[in-house]
Design a protein around this nucleic acid. Structure first.
Length: 591
RNA sequence: GGUCCGGUAGCUCAGUUGGAUAGAGCAUCAGCCUUCUAAGCUGAGGGUCAUUGGUUCGAAUCCAAUCCGGAUCACCA
């Protein structure tokens, strides 16, 4: 149990003992004591004044005395300022905490709780390479999965690959028209980039054709429908659905090029999945559920044969679930996929990491599942995140205005190389050690940049002012980790009895901060919010950095101080490494 | 128009779920390497928490209205 939770518990017990009535943890608030006051944690008593009809001073005094007398192993002193009861935790508590955990690499993590969660993220289209927006999705999803694991859940990482549909056919048609049998191999191009080029080519050609038709006097809407390349694409989609061999062959070939490219990117950024779903296998699912829903009158049929659900009573609109020709739409397959996941794994919670542009869609999906009475309806959760935009506006792959994932990663590595060379601290590194270091620093900076902000906020990425290595960054944290490793290499831990020790302010601040790690993981898991981990780890590193500048470990005043600081440093390193791992960021032994 | 999200320092963001004098990073300015890694440390300046009203011991936080920005409301996915 965290010290904050212990204080909460002992406060409810004390209040009950003192005033003879039951209290819960909601009746008062516990928070960290502000640095300008004496004490470690604070009980806010204003909320108790009314129910007890006593002044805050009186309650605080009685409570303070009771806490110190009855929990002497936890609390050593208190003071009251206005309605705030500031409680000092005993030095022995902190010493014992350090002694027990300074070398525990699992500190802060929870044992398995039996809950099964699936996190779906990434969900790429197989017609273009990944871009910065996908990276935010990947890093968020991956990190949320790791945080949930650390908090005791069994987690399955999943991915739905959008490998079919009109947008895939666009790249295929363009390849047929313009490629002259070129391949990634023949052009020495990474497969996903290669296919992406044809997606852009499609759109250029399409625009040209539409413009030409309009020039001939056709109106815009019709021109967009009638453009020959679009007609050919639609024909191809029909051929695909009919299973026309040469179309399927081309589809498989081009998709395999893209997968080769994705594999490289995923490997580079450290993304992985336990289960991959393909839309080409799932797009027909869900129709049965719709049929059942028709029988139950959850859905209704319009005269033309299309099937709808009326969500107006929930403040939404009517939504189509089956076309008049009986084929399924986006939402239909999602219902089917949700059912399939549940059948396969009996998951307790299904988290979908999807951009906030799809808030409406996910709301509809959940509502439909609810109205159908599906058992997992309430366990579907949309982790919605804001778009990554450029100073010039939205990224559009159709128009080629995207920050490519592979490009940005290698640019960051290059930046890391330049900066490292300037500082000249790792001259004895081998070539491959250097490559690893640049990767760790460059990719770390990028991940931290994308994950340090609350998911639902949209963010603007300015390529001109590229991500730097100072302040609230991964590099700062990695740097402090490397410094600690250096100290630990040069100094051995002494084996001294620390029973009677006490803390200087920065030592105390550091151990108090480290103690919170478990609570931070829990909160991040509950809120599905990796930025809490990022902020926390940064604060740990910052506190360490001040501590490190102020107090020497090698030349500590006494043997006890040297041991205490050695253990503090070691535990800090472990927490940094562990926390950064939850964000998918590695830490170097030297930099 | 309906629904949803956002608006906090020049910029990028926190703000422990209603608590003490609203905090970090960047940028600016002033100090600090003969001492365990200066990708660092210490300090300074910088605020109408979009606006107005309400709720109460107490509001950046909750409620209402308004303003600004964004997303979405397809027989696309």
């Amino acid at each position: 149990m965290s010290i904050a939770a212990s204080l909460q518990k002992s406060t409810t017990e004390s209040l009950k003992a003192l005033f003879g009535q039951p209290f819960t943890e909601k009746d008062f608030q516990v928070s960290q004591t502000k640095p300008e006051f004496e004490g470690d944690y604070t009980v806010v008593m204003f909320s108790l004044v009314k129910s007890l009809k006593l002044s805050a001073e009186v309650i605080g005094n009685q409570l303070g005395v009771h806490l110190v007398e009855n929990y002497p192993h936890l609390f050593s002193a208190y003071n009251i300022i206005k309605g705030f009861l500031n409680v000092t935790v005993t030095d022995n508590y902190w010493l014992a905490l350090l002694e027990k955990n300074y070398d525990d690499i699992c500190f802060g993590k929870q044992p398995l709780n039996g809950k099964k969660v699936m996190v779906e993220y990434s969900s790429p289209n197989t017609n273009k390479p990944l871009h910065l927006g996908h990276l935010r999705n990947n890093f968020l999803g991956w990190s949320v999965a790791e945080i949930l694991k650390a908090n005791g859940n069994s987690v399955l990482k999943s991915c739905i690959v959008n490998d079919r549909g009109i947008h895939i056919c666009k790249s295929m048609i363009a390849w047929q028209m313009f490629a002259n049998h070129a391949t990634p191999q023949s052009t020495h191009t990474k497969g996903d980039h290669f296919v992406g080029e044809y997606y852009v080519k499609f759109n250029n050609e399409y625009k040209k054709e539409v413009a030409a038709l309009i020039a001939e006097g056709m109106d815009e809407k019709e021109a967009e429908k009638e453009a020959p390349i679009m007609r050919a694409t639609q024909q191809m989609l029909q051929d695909w659905e009919a299973g026309k061999p040469e179309v399927i062959e081309l589809w498989k070939t081009m998709n395999s090029w893209v997968y080769d490219g994705f594999d490289i990117t995923y490997k580079t950024i450290g993304s992985d999945f336990d289960k991959i779903y393909y839309e080409s296998n799932t797009y027909l699912l869900g129709k049965d559920i719709v049929r059942q829903g028709l029988d139950k009158n959850v859905f209704f049929k319009k005269p033309d044969g299309s099937v709808w659900i009326d969500l107006t009573s929930d403040g939404l609109d009517e939504k189509l679930v089956l076309r008049k020709d009986g084929t399924s739409v986006y939402i239909t397959q999602d219902i089917g996929l949700a059912q399939q996941k549940y059948d396969e794994y009996k998951i307790d919670q299904s988290i979908h990491v999807i951009g906030d542009e799809q808030n409406y869609h996910m709301k509809v999906l959940q509502l439909i599942c609810k109205r159908m009475g599906l058992p997992y309806a309430d366990d579907i959760h949309h982790l919605s995140y804001g778009m990554v935009e450029l100073p010039t506006g939205k990224m559009k792959s159709r128009e080629g205005t995207v920050v490519d994932a592979d490009d940005i990663v290698s640019e960051m590595e290059k930046e890391a190389m330049v900066k490292t060379a300037e500082l000249g601290k790792v001259k004895e590194f081998t070539k491959s050690e250097l490559t690893d270091l640049y990767h760790v620093i460059g990719l770390g900076a990028l991940k931290f940049f994308l994950v340090r902000i609350e998911p639902k906020k949209k963010m603007i990425f300015n390529p001109e002012e590229s991500i730097d290595f100072h302040g609230f960054t991964a590099a700062f944290i990695q740097y402090n980790y490397a410094r600690i490793q250096s100290v630990l290499r040069k100094n051995e831990m002494l084996k001294v009895n620390l029973e009677a020790g006490s803390f200087l302010p920065l030592e105390k601040e550091l151990v108090v901060s480290l103690e919170r790690y478990g609570a931070v993981i829990s909160q991040a898991a509950e809120e599905l919010n990796p930025s809490l981990i990022a902020i926390y780890i940064f604060n740990v590193a910052k506190t360490f950095s001040s501590f490190f500048a102020e107090h020497s470990i090698a030349k500590a005043e006494t043997a006890e101080k040297k041991q205490l600081r050695w253990q503090l440093a070691n535990m800090t390193a472990n927490v940094i490494k562990s926390g950064m791992a939850l964000l998918g960021i590695d830490v170097p032994g030297r930099m």
